[in-house]
């Protein structure tokens, strides 16, 4: 037996100053606030739990139908339904603290001011280890431009939030742009500590029997294995252009998919739609990942990051 086989495997990764015991996180909006999965998953075994996107006030979301299945994927138009930051801190965060979860709070706002206030509130709460800002929603105060699709607006909101928090700040980028690397650089310049790539791709499906869109909201976000090649390409492209770490996501269903994202340049990954298909998927993936590392004689999983760029 060679030396590397004798050593224990090391799954830990670093996202800037944030240390995770392993690279497997949950993607926002697919894991609730964690407690819903407690009968399937040992929450503390996850690299981190990224909770359902939060806003200052509770949000009711869109009317149904909100989801539709598409080839190897699904479209959703939930409309960012959430219980609001106050209720999250009061009712959900104590559980996550109790199970010693690494908590990343995803949040969004309708204006720069709302983003800043949300970041301040979340930073003041006990038990949140990092913030992830969703910039794929429109600025309702200024012409409904989607923050994450206009570099000027994206810079403004990210730099404003940067000043409002000392927690590690992750910016989740929208893939619905012409040049994802330019948006990644914008977020980095504005002070982001890490990037999440990618949010859902805008799509739609039409019912040919009645000629109408299948979603009540007409359009929705496409997720699942259908988008994985797009996500891997975007991670690969951004890895070359930014220095900050990247969290890769988009249709991850197995350890092979995790490795693919890491080779493309991801320092960690998030499992999203996969949680809906199999509620234990994150635990299964961690098991598979350990087996892969042992079989390949890989000691530290972090060594995989960017491996495809050599």
């Amino acid at each position: 037996m060679n030396v590397s086989m004798k050593r224990n495997i090391d799954l830990s990764v670093k996202i800037g100053t944030l240390k995770l015991k392993n690279p497997v996180m949950t993607a926002s909006g697919t894991f609730g606030y964690g407690d819903e999965y407690s009968e399937f998953v040992d929450i503390h075994k996850l690299g981190a739990v990224v909770v359902k996107g939060l806003s200052l006030k509770p949000k009711e979301g869109n009317p149904p139908p909100r989801i539709v299945e598409t080839p190897s994927g699904m479209l959703n138009a939930i409309g960012l339904q959430n219980i609001g930051i106050d209720a999250f801190v009061k009712r959900k965060l104590p559980y996550l603290r109790e199970v010693r979860a690494k908590v990343i709070a995803n949040f969004f706002g309708d204006s720069v001011g709302e983003y800043v206030q949300a970041a301040e509130k979340l930073s003041a709460a006990d038990g949140i280890h990092a913030l992830e800002m969703n910039i794929s929603c429109p600025n309702k105060q200024e012409g409904w431009i989607v923050f994450g699709t206009d570099p000027r607006v994206a810079y403004e909101v990210v730099s404003a939030v940067r000043k409002a928090t000392t927690l590690p700040l992750i910016v989740k980028l929208s893939p619905n742009v012409t040049d994802i690397a330019a948006m990644a650089r914008t977020a980095e310049d504005a002070g982001a500590d890490a990037l999440s790539l990618i949010n859902t791709l805008t799509g739609m499906a039409i019912d040919i029997r009645n000629g109408k869109p299948k979603l009540a909201n007409t359009v929705g976000g496409l997720s699942g294995p259908a988008i994985r090649p797009v996500a891997v390409r975007m991670v690969y492209e951004c890895y070359r252009k930014v220095k900050i770490p990247i969290i890769g996501m988009g249709g991850i269903l197995s350890a092979d998919d995790v490795i693919e994202f890491m080779l493309a340049g991801a320092a960690a990954v998030a499992v999203g739609t996969g949680n809906f298909i199999n509620p234990r998927i994150t635990m299964d993936i961690l098991g598979e990942l350990k087996i892969y590392m042992k079989s390949q004689g890989i000691h530290a999983v972090s060594r995989l990051t960017g491996g495809a760029h050599c």
Partner: peptide
């Protein structure tokens, strides 16, 4: 329409007088 079945995806909501 349903995705997760355990209450997290919020896909299968119905509108009630007490909210979704």
């Amino acid at each position: 329409h349903m995705a997760c079945g355990i209450g997290t995806c919020l896909g299968c909501i119905v509108k009630t007088h007490k909210g979704h």
